[in-house]
Write a protein that binds this DNA or RNA. Structure first.
Lengths: 245, 245
DNA sequence: CCTAAATGTCTATTGATCTAGACAAGTATA
DNA sequence: TATACTTGTCTAGATCAATAGACATTTAGG
């Protein structure tokens, strides 16, 4: 551990935040599994070449996230170290994919309305521009931690009861089934990584400077007709993605 | 644009950096395509609720990246607005996928050596632990901009000349072909997004606080025998990914 | 019980970040 | 050419981030 880990100064990102990110990654990589604790503050300070107070700020941020817990006299204990793996395949389903990894999956419908499809939405759903679509905003969480925030669009003509059914059943797959669609497949997924904006920080309960992965995806029925277009923002530091081709 | 875009204060990420990130995203989304210019500094300052000097710091950072160019009296011109789309499918090939999007693809071999496979590498390549593997470190760029930094592992027994061939041919696919492997497919890809560390900032010529997408992937021949395990770090704000399932 | 090691708290100082205002200088257009 | 609009530059002050050092408090172990 004598090797001094490099961090960058004067770049608009505070040192304590850079250190927090590095320690979070080390935790999820299992680097501290031997002890179940983060190295002592003085050791981290030496390692990163900063003052101990700066390390303390970083650890305070991680404690705020519930990732670690400092105990005076003992050290800083790791409370949680998991990244949830999210599989992406032709049969991508949110709940099924997360199934065994989290004990309890929560889905909260934040808002729903019927709107005219924008050009982007209409193109993705293969509808004429301005066609009626159901818009659904929701947040999903695993074991109480928000994992993703989604805005999804469905053709209103075909799935008029989408919002009510999703609110009641808590699952898109079940809501589709209740409307006569038994099977659907993922047609395309586009992924971008970027910093979270203020709304996403709030929805996903992230500490600022956090990263979100934004996925634009289209699902279609077995005949290839699009049934859903969605924009999902994942809390990047709580997830990894496995792409099965 | 009267709507005030929310940014977060006191979070370890300087306001100018948050604004730079938002403007970069807006540019790549084509939000300013009508004029080919970023809105005036005073307008951005109003929009984000900050002082004009803070906006100037953000634009200076984007100018440093070569993304915009300020012209006194006129405004701030957009120099480049592209995100390269990187397709991920069973037939993912770096060069072929980028083909039409960039004029010139560069591949630079940074280092190569023969090492004993670590547990992780051996498992991915289905080799006994400690088996000899060829390790290749390279950086790829499109039109002069670094796009990805890769560490790749190949079974040394089967592909002893990998490093030399890649150095000469500039392509993994061609190096495989020269060693008698005509076809291979992507078996799995795992993706994580995180902040870049100092080495990645340097290799990919990123400004600090930048995001990298790390992809762990395995390629196999048509019989399903793994031929390559690689860890590629992409410059996230220069790329988007399309997953074809 | 003592000591070493760890986190907790406090004060003081320096440099970076952000705000505020004023004015200069270049560009486009009527 | 006059004017409005834009970027460029300067000064000054307030707040945040980071360093430095000292000492208190808690825990674990010999």
């Amino acid at each position: 551990m004598a090797a001094r880990k490099t961090i960058e100064r004067q770049t608009g990102v505070a040192l304590w935040r850079q250190i927090a990110d590095r320690v979070r990654l080390a935790i999820s990589n299992g680097d501290y599994d031997a002890t179940g604790m983060v190295p002592p503050e003085t050791a981290l300070a030496r390692e990163f070449g900063v003052n101990r107070h700066t390390v303390r700020s970083a650890l305070a941020a991680l404690a705020e996230e519930g990732l670690v817990r400092a105990v005076q006299g003992r050290g800083t204990l790791i409370e949680r170290k998991d990244r949830v793996t999210y599989p992406i395949s032709r049969r991508t389903r949110f709940s099924a994919g997360l199934g065994r990894q989290v004990k309890e999956i929560g889905s909260q419908l934040l808002a729903h309305r019927e709107v005219q499809a924008s050009g982007e939405v209409a193109a993705a759903l293969a509808l004429p521009p301005g066609a009626a679509v159901v818009e659904l905003q929701s947040v999903s969480s695993g074991d109480g931690r928000p994992l993703s925030a989604t805005i999804a669009y469905f053709p209103a003509g075909r799935f008029p009861e989408m919002a009510q059914l999703y609110a009641r059943l808590g699952s898109i797959t079940k809501a589709f089934a209740a409307q006569g669609l038994d099977d659907y497949v993922r047609v395309s997924t586009e992924i971008v990584a970027r910093h979270a904006d203020a709304e996403e920080l709030k929805l996903l309960k992230l500490s600022a400077g956090a990263i979100v992965i934004e996925a634009l995806s289209v699902n279609a029925d077995v005949e290839g007709r699009p049934v859903e277009y969605s924009r999902t923002r994942f809390a990047a530091d709580r997830m990894k993605f496995r792409i099965e081709t």
